[in-house]
Design a binder for these strands. Structure first.
Lengths: 256, 256
DNA sequence: TCTTTCTGTTCGCTTCTCTCGAACTTCCCT
DNA sequence: AGGGAAGTTCGAGAGAAGCGAACAGAAAGA
């Protein structure tokens, strides 16, 4: 009833390790057979077997003995994204937003209690970030994520905190449960969230919710370097633009 | 030595079926337990087991008994893409290309003998396509793919044809081996490929290679509706713009 | 309201296959 | 030429996936 995942009583362990291997390749930025074997504490032969299978299936790329995550996942991910109505509707508005502000425009949705960057449009002044489209982040560490949390029913937020915790990303991250709920109440009331270097140092961010009736479908934000994103510019210039974009997206989302 | 995948002698079958399941969910645009069980000819209980496990791991989404491909794959795919130097370098130029032409600008790379759309930038006149970023396509069915094939060593092309065949997509698709090699020779010589409704009806496309020394790293194209993409406009306006963009990308690719 | 008939889900048993360590090979470095 | 470290192959044993039958639960119909 609560939409949360129920533990499978007989999980397919091999499927789990398969993904553990891919995730490890990701976190290591590629690995050799022995490296992987060491990191996951599995025999070399097993690691070898998995990697060869994954490579043969096309999900992993091998060159000079180093195995890496393949672009095949982009096919699955891109497909999943293309089915998301919000993505289709939001893209043109995000483009406009990136153009008028010159900064990054970001779109985030919740899935399985984590935030997924559905899209990112780069403005002409935007500096390259280390983050990428599709990246999965903890909800409490970003303005976007907090905006989503603020409009989710209390029990779901509780469930998410229980499952994922509140680990710190920088010294500014909210790590206290009560403090977080206070922040969320404020965000809900004023319909906007700030992120002052909470996830990435030197980066500020403002986010607004994208609602469909009473439900939140995602959050939209503009982010840029602290130097250019001062309080005044955020409130006077960025926020109005954000709200305008969010409104249009909300309308197009339900319409047609 | 030839970079081709060698068959694993003891493939991890469970990993294979895991991905077969996800791919099936994709091709069916979501499925219930029994639907999946029927399509793959596996017992309901097994299908159930896999789906629950995948859902628990976060790779599949369930709502009202229907399981779908999750956005989690976008995290892996986006990560893989972000590591691709060509992607980073090409994006700004593609943006410019989409703006000046008003059409779609597309970037494709080869992986495992198939073409992957690394990026797509939408111009203001561009009509929405059914295809999505990350989509994997047969190389011989697009101008982009043929461009890549044209600059690949002959034996690799042979290997790719052997593995994937030359199935037709529309009535214009090249399905004959010799005919294809003739076309490739022409493309190699003139450094451009046309696609006249070969993959999608009503859609024309011009592509140019992106080279790094003698090796091809990808292909860049502009595509639009037949009505706007006549021979004259392609040769007079589009092609020069494409070449300019490709040149800049090639330079930035090696430099720094 | 009581059937009927779909789902999805649980439960063991059987069988297949994944696991794992050891042995073999290949390559590089000394 | 020899030592070390990587990848790879192999076979036996343990363990997990496969499978059908039975159960539960919801929806549709009488």
């Amino acid at each position: 009833m609560d939409g949360n995942s129920t533990e499978p009583n007989t999980p397919v362990k091999t499927a789990q390790t398969t993904f553990r291997i891919v995730e490890t390749l990701k976190s290591l930025d590629g690995a050799t057979v022995t490296e992987l074997s060491g990191h996951l504490a599995i025999p070399k032969s097993s690691a070898h077997n998995y990697l060869r299978t994954l490579e043969h299936e096309g999900y992993v790329i091998e060159s000079d003995g180093v195995y890496e995550v393949g672009l095949r996942f982009l096919d699955l991910g891109g497909y999943a994204r293309s089915r998301d109505r919000l993505y289709t509707v939001a893209t043109p508005e995000m483009k406009r937003l990136a153009e008028t502000t010159g900064e990054y425009a970001n779109l985030l949705v919740e899935e399985h209690g984590r935030g997924v960057f559905l899209a990112r449009e780069r403005g002409e002044h935007a500096v390259s970030l280390d983050s990428y489209t599709g990246q999965s982040v903890r909800l409490h560490t970003t303005a976007l994520g907090k905006t989503v949390l603020a409009f989710l029913p209390r029990d779901r937020v509780e469930a998410i905190i229980d499952r994922h915790g509140l680990p710190a990303k920088t010294e500014h991250t909210i790590t206290d449960r009560d403090e977080l709920f206070e922040a969320l109440a404020d965000i809900r009331q004023r319909e906007r969230a700030y992120d002052r270097e909470e996830r990435i140092k030197g980066l500020n961010c403002v986010a607004v919710p994208i609602l469909s009736g009473d439900d939140i479908t995602g959050a939209l934000s503009v982010s840029g370097p602290v130097s250019r994103m001062d309080e005044e510019r955020i409130d006077e210039e960025i926020l109005p633009e954000l709200r305008r974009a969010a409104n249009i997206i909300e309308l197009n989302q339900t319409h047609s």
